[in-house]
Design a protein around this nucleic acid. Structure first.
Lengths: 149, 149
DNA sequence: TTAGATGCAAACGGTTTGCAGGGAA
DNA sequence: TTCCCTGCAAACCGTTTGCATCTAA
């Protein structure tokens, strides 16, 4: 079991390494440590949370480097950015396997994930309607738990 | 023709008036002038744009009042807020008639509107899946014009 | 050796807040 | 007259930037 996770992260690291080499970026220890920290935890995070988490793990990087590295990870598709209606960004590691969208609880900000294939039909419709290509999209529902009856 | 628009704005103003009275808020001239300015123009806007537009129309209000009033207009549903992946908010007057979502051009930020009823099916699916109620949602596609062949 | 990366702190910019003065009720 | 609202400016806070230092290549 553990082996699988390690293998999986090896692949991730390789993707990042290839990306860095292809673009002539340096393979600094900071970049790989940030990558590791992100992929070691599930769920969504923001920059400040990541900063604190790394400090707790005794690996302090500057916020500037976090922003810089996240930019690279976004560019190579390993991380996805969200703006859930707030004015600070949240991120998550990209799950190659499971495409999904989000439901956000109004009070707590808690994030749930779902997938409904009909979004693909809507996308096709929009592309056809406007003669455009879609690079990405965002679908988020906001709401609350239903009352118990 | 003009008459229709005026009648329509009378309704809007009445909705706002009722809301203010119901909540014990004062009916200040600033609030109604802001409402008028917003409903006099189509499309999306941000606070700074609205601020400048009002200054050009020789009616200067402070940014604080704009933020304050927009909050009221959001609360009573006359205005809708969007966060199109940037870290500043955009707004639009709520169109009672035509529900719609957005397509944003990556380069220009230009906004197109569309409606696809399948979003309702997805919403119902999500509500059922998580046993939640949805207060609002956001569906936005981002992309580019297709190449001319 | 050197161009690109890091760390730090200051700058930035949209939004929020505190407070004195003003006006709706 | 009351106290909510406005205007102004400062504070706030996530993000970006400038620059001296460091280091991967």
């Amino acid at each position: 079991m553990k082996k699988i996770a390690e293998d999986s992260f090896d692949n991730i690291r390789k993707l990042f390494t290839d990306y860095l080499e292809r673009h002539g970026h340096r393979k600094t220890p900071e970049r790989f440590t940030i990558l590791k920290e992100i992929f070691a935890t599930d769920g969504h995070f923001d920059i400040e949370t990541l900063y604190i988490r790394m400090k707790n793990h005794k690996y302090r990087v500057s916020r500037a480097t976090l922003y810089n590295t996240i930019e690279l990870l976004l560019d190579c598709g390993l991380v996805t950015k969200h703006q859930f209606g707030t004015n600070y960004a949240q991120f998550e590691k990209t799950n190659m396997m499971i495409q999904h969208d989000h439901f956000i609880f109004n009070e707590t900000g808690e994030v749930l994930e779902f997938y409904d294939p009909r979004i693909e039909e809507i996308k096709a419709h929009v592309q056809d309607l406007f003669n455009v290509d879609t690079t990405h999209y965002s679908l988020t529902f906001y709401g609350n738990s239903r009352e118990q009856k």
